[in-house]
């Protein structure tokens, strides 16, 4: 039996969804990003200046944001 949505499913058979980071790599990616963020935060804490806020704090925040998402996925809470 065919329904419109089933046709949609069949039409998309060539493009299964793959996440940007596969399940096996989540821990490694999350760990590296969090470590990078920690190092930048450490450097920032040694020299807290206004110029260092976007220069070190910015990349550290972005790395922490993505790293945290991947690390949470890696430990089994799939957000």
């Amino acid at each position: 039996m065919s329904s419109p949505l089933l046709d949609v499913w069949e039409a998309a058979s060539a493009s299964p969804f793959h996440p940007p980071v596969s399940k096996d790599a989540q821990f490694a990616v999350g760990f590296v990003l969090l470590l990078f963020s920690l190092v930048l935060a450490g450097v920032f804490s040694l020299n807290r200046s206004f110029i260092n806020l976007p220069l070190l704090g910015g990349p550290a925040s972005v790395a922490f944001g993505f790293g945290a998402v991947y690390m949470i996925c890696a430990v089994g809470v799939y957000v």
């Binding site: 963020s37 920032f44 804490s45 260092n52 806020l53 944001g65 993505f66 945290a68 998402v69």
Partner: peptide
């Protein structure tokens, strides 16, 4: 949305520290 929210939160921490 999720990584951006966490990024903004972390950046706020850096700003408060500074």
């Amino acid at each position: 949305r999720k990584p951006i929210v966490i990024t903004l939160g972390m950046f706020a921490v850096f700003t408060v520290a500074w």
